[in-house]
Simulated scan of single mutants.
Amino acid sequence: MSPKSAGLAKKWGWNNVKVYVEGTPAWQKAGHYFAASPDYVRTANIVLIDLRTPAAVSAGHIPRAVNLPAAKLAESKAAFPKSLTAPLVFYSETPEVSAKAVATAQGWGYTNVALLEFPGVRPWMEKGYDIKTGPAATKIVFERKLAPGEISIADFEAALKTKVIQVLDVRGPAEYAEGHFPGALNISLDELPAKIADFPQNKFYVVHCQTGLRGEMAYLLLKEKGFDVKYLKAGCKCNLDGTYLIWEL
């Protein structure tokens, strides 16, 4: 987490909080990769890509994998999701091939990329996980699923027009002053714990920030206190004249 988020976590009572200051960009720049666990691969909403040949894939592959052979990956950019935050997981017979695919996807701008924590399907089978035989899909179909408590952009905009929600802007005062959603109440995330007792319980709140990180933390705090609340996880740009742009991250 960020230093600011870590500070808030400590303020709220957590005492074993660590910060990797350099963050994901530095980790990736140093040549490191993220490894996806079997549980993550089996249950998360991801794009799973099998880099092996069609013949090898037909002999046995991980369910819901899409077959994009490593030899053709460089020319397959158009087949990938438009959202650069779509979670991608690659696997092949060797970690070197998977790592090269991860680097290729990162070079295209994808920010949530990993390789399976072990190479090939044999370790997968040895752990007792299911294997599917026959050809795998060759077309990527990905739709981001909303996390618990998250509101879609379409539902947020509809509610904003009908004024059935109280928008809670948890950005800082300076950010709020540069532009905000009409009728939004501004209480920064670090001030929220001290002011939450003053909130009416009979309102439906939607929390937002710049990208959703602070909004999600505020959502969790309000939800714990029994409020009817959701949060918006999206990019937001609000203008002083009340107009705004919202886009999927």
Results as ranks from 00 to 15, higher is better:
120 G>T: 07
178 E>S: 00
142 F>G: 01
161 K>P: 02
154 A>V: 13
190 D>F: 02
160 L>V: 01
150 E>L: 00
129 Y>L: 07
170 V>E: 11
164 V>I: 14
200 P>D: 15
195 K>S: 03
188 S>F: 03
199 F>D: 06
128 G>W: 10
200 P>H: 12
190 D>N: 15
182 P>D: 09
154 A>F: 05
155 D>K: 08
130 D>L: 05
141 V>A: 03
147 A>S: 07
177 A>I: 02
180 H>P: 01
168 L>S: 01
129 Y>P: 08
179 G>V: 03
140 I>E: 15
177 A>F: 03
163 K>F: 06
183 G>F: 07
178 E>I: 00
131 I>V: 05
134 G>V: 10
131 I>Y: 13
175 E>G: 02
161 K>Y: 04
120 G>W: 10
146 L>M: 13
142 F>T: 00
159 A>G: 06
198 D>G: 05
128 G>Q: 10
164 V>K: 13
128 G>S: 13
188 S>P: 10
196 I>P: 06
195 K>Y: 10
198 D>H: 07
194 A>V: 15
155 D>M: 06
140 I>R: 11
171 R>D: 02
176 Y>S: 09
151 I>S: 07
162 T>S: 04
133 T>Y: 15
173 P>N: 00
191 E>A: 14
168 L>M: 03
170 V>W: 12
154 A>I: 10
171 R>S: 03
129 Y>T: 06
176 Y>N: 05
192 L>R: 04
167 V>R: 14
158 A>C: 06
193 P>H: 07
187 I>F: 03
169 D>W: 01
141 V>W: 11
142 F>D: 02
168 L>V: 00
189 L>E: 07
150 E>F: 01
196 I>Q: 10
135 P>D: 05
143 E>N: 14
129 Y>S: 08
196 I>S: 15
178 E>N: 00
155 D>N: 08
184 A>I: 06
135 P>Q: 09
145 K>D: 12
160 L>I: 01
192 L>Q: 12
141 V>D: 07
173 P>A: 01
166 Q>C: 02
131 I>P: 05
148 P>E: 07
188 S>D: 12
119 P>W: 07
174 A>Y: 14
126 E>V: 01
157 E>C: 02
174 A>G: 05
185 L>T: 10
165 I>M: 05
121 V>D: 09
184 A>N: 13
132 K>R: 13
160 L>R: 15
162 T>G: 00
136 A>V: 10
201 Q>P: 01
128 G>E: 07
121 V>L: 14
196 I>E: 11
150 E>N: 03
134 G>M: 04
153 I>A: 14
132 K>E: 06
121 V>F: 13
125 M>W: 13
120 G>D: 15
144 R>I: 00
189 L>W: 06
173 P>C: 00
173 P>H: 02
171 R>N: 03
177 A>Y: 10
138 T>Q: 12
171 R>Q: 05
176 Y>T: 13
173 P>V: 01
159 A>C: 04
195 K>L: 02
151 I>E: 15
120 G>C: 11
160 L>T: 04
163 K>H: 07
123 P>K: 14
192 L>G: 09
174 A>T: 11
193 P>M: 05
154 A>M: 12
201 Q>L: 06
129 Y>Q: 12
187 I>H: 03
128 G>P: 08
150 E>R: 05
160 L>N: 04
169 D>V: 01
177 A>W: 08
